[in-house]
């Protein structure tokens, strides 16, 4: 007993700082938001969530009927569907190619160049991509440039292009780490057996990369479906635009609209979160080890 106590006393000073911030500003806020979502807390009417009325699932009933919640979830899903395949498979192709470069120096240079965009602040990329599409590729003219990115159906594709550019190198590194664990003899013996390159890729490379693929799919699904910065920056709070997703609607409700109904905003946030968790569990099920 004494032993475990002294042991714990030795350990906790190391762990407590991390747990303090993690619980205080990450775990507690979402739990607290769940509680707020059961109240009618409006920031301009009530002093605190405690003084607001506890209304059980009324917010959820309202939210499910709310067309803005529905379209917000739908738009977020559309963007995720456009964004995800490119963000998963382009880096995989790059990693397989870089892994086959035998010259160490050349492989290092490729890695470095691919990684450069990852060092930049994401939300700032909007300016340059606007510039490229307007002035370099002439897809839009100067008169409609400030609004076009938020207003058309090409919005999501443009944002996806930006994110692909940004994340290509970083995700390639993940795959390369996975590829480096595959013993080279596996390839050689497969070639000796006369297996085609496609079969080798499918049965050895792809099979071995599956755990990394799962992690990346889940993580990127999360970032894409809960994206908010780029939407607000490109589309603002214009409801007619596809960028008015559930995350933007939540922000708008909590900090701008009417009485700032934060109970309802928390509900929107939690509906999005529940939807995401559902998909994540489904992904884990799809990718489960079938052997």
């Amino acid at each position: 007993m004494w032993r475990t106590t002294t042991r714990a006393a030795r350990t906790w000073p190391y762990l407590l700082p991390a747990l303090f911030f993690f619980v205080g500003w990450q775990l507690w806020p979402i739990v607290r938001a769940l509680w707020i979502s059961f109240t009618s807390f409006s920031f301009l009417l009530d002093d605190s969530p405690e003084s607001a009325k506890f209304i059980w699932f009324q917010n959820y009933v309202d939210a499910v009927k709310d067309p803005l919640v529905r379209s917000g979830l739908w738009h977020a899903a559309v963007f995720t569907a456009i964004f995800l395949p490119g963000m998963i498979f382009l880096p995989m192709v790059m990693a397989v190619l870089v892994d086959r470069v035998h010259n160490k120096k050349a492989a290092g240079v490729y890695r470095l160049i691919l990684l450069i965009p990852a060092m930049m602040p994401g939300p700032l990329g909007i300016g340059p991509i606007n510039y490229m599409l307007v002035n370099v590729f002439h897809l839009y003219d100067v008169t409609n440039q400030p609004t076009w990115l938020g207003a058309t159906n090409l919005t999501f594709l443009s944002l996806a292009l930006m994110e692909w550019w940004w994340g290509l190198g970083f995700h390639t590194m993940f795959y390369l780490a996975g590829l480096s664990t595959i013993p080279k003899e596996l390839y050689e013996s497969a070639r000796v057996d006369g297996a085609s390159e496609w079969r080798i890729f499918w049965n050895i490379t792809f099979a071995r990369l599956r755990p990394i693929l799962l992690v990346l799919v889940v993580l990127r699904f999360g970032t894409a479906f809960a994206l908010i910065d780029e939407y607000i920056l490109t589309g603002g709070f214009d409801r007619s635009r596809p960028t008015y997703t559930w995350t933007v609607y939540m922000w708008d409700t909590a900090f701008q609209l009417g009485d700032q109904n934060r109970g309802y905003a928390a509900t929107i946030g939690w509906i999005g979160t529940i939807g995401m968790l559902g998909v994540v569990l489904w992904l884990f099920y799809v990718f489960r080890n079938k052997d």
């Binding site: 990450q26 775990l27 806020p29 479906f225 995350t247 946030g269 999005g272 979160t273």
Partner: peptide, 8 residues
């Protein structure tokens, strides 16, 4: 998505 949902 704790940064978004926990924002409030």
């Amino acid at each position: 998505p704790s940064r978004v949902t926990g924002l409030i």
